[in-house]
């Protein structure tokens, strides 16, 4: 359960990070408030994940933190690639006026 939470924290962090990049927010614009939320998540996500890992295992917590971070990063990059492709395709398929 704790590992799942850590994965979620890391995934949220990476997702926010990706959506804070200029290439993404130009393609998918959002409000300033949302931007602030993404920044907070990007800042706090890894910290919360580390706290959870250290609670679970003080000696091995850092290893869990790094390993789960890598797994979450790969998952997020695949998801965001799929998401962008879907949105991109949807825009292209819209009739132009």
């Amino acid at each position: 359960m704790i590992m799942l939470c850590v994965l979620v924290f890391w995934s949220a962090t990476f997702w926010s990070h990706e959506f804070l990049q200029p290439r993404t927010y130009v393609a998918f614009p959002y409000q300033t408030r949302t931007r602030l939320t993404y920044r907070v998540i990007r800042l706090l996500g890894p910290c919360c994940a580390l706290a959870f890992c250290l609670i679970q295992s003080p000696t091995l917590g850092v290893l869990y933190w790094l390993g789960l971070g890598g797994v979450a990063g790969v998952g997020t990059s695949l998801l965001s690639a799929g998401f962008k492709q879907k949105r991109g395709l949807a825009r292209v398929s819209k009739p132009s006026r």
Binding site: G73, L78, A81
Partner: peptide
């Protein structure tokens, strides 16, 4: 840093 999770399989 900017391309941390950038993946363009398509």
């Amino acid at each position: 840093w900017p391309d941390l999770v950038l993946f363009r399989p398509f």
